[in-house]
């Protein structure tokens, strides 16, 4: 998995859709893969809750006989939290303020989910000559993207 490509994809979504403030990619079991969140948000907790909510929503949709789930969107007084499934192994969480254009987010998220899925499934690129070494040394649990 190319971590930098994943980070770039998450940042692109934030830049593309006005009102998107934070994004998180996690495994379906709720463990964090990458977070582009502000300091006040705990990305681990958000990832775990979002994975649980997506699984629950799938079960609700199945119990109500309403077919496969597309996404979940949580509406609150201060904005939105949307959760999308990325393939069968990961989820994408998008947090936005109340001005966010939700229909536009769904359009952009569809292609972003496809690209993120491809990034997650791709093997680690071979370090060729001149390649930048894997940024393990830059591990930063704070998740500050700048």
């Amino acid at each position: 998995m190319n971590h930098d490509a994943l980070v770039a994809e998450m940042r692109t979504l934030r830049d593309q859709v006005v009102g998107v403030t934070d994004t998180v990619v996690a495994a379906v079991d709720g463990l964090l893969i990458a977070a582009d969140t502000e300091d006040a948000i705990d990305p681990d907790g958000l990832a775990a809750l979002a994975a649980a909510s997506l699984g629950l929503a799938r079960r609700i949709a199945a119990a109500a006989l309403r077919g496969p789930l597309r996404r979940t969107v949580t509406c609150s007084s201060g904005g939105y939290t949307a959760v999308y499934a990325v393939g069968e192994t990961a989820i994408l969480v998008v947090v936005g303020d109340e001005g966010m254009n939700v229909p536009q987010l769904h359009v952009e998220a569809r292609s972003a989910v496809e690209r993120i899925g491809a990034i997650l499934l791709a093997p680690e690129p071979e370090p060729g000559p001149g390649a930048v070494p894997a940024p393990d040394s830059a591990y930063d649990p704070q998740g500050v993207l700048g």
Partner: peptide
């Protein structure tokens, strides 16, 4: 430019 790689990381499916 801020470091783009300053993120928590984990391989999917490690659990």
């Amino acid at each position: 430019a801020p470091a783009a790689e300053g993120l928590p990381r984990r391989e999917p499916g490690a659990s």
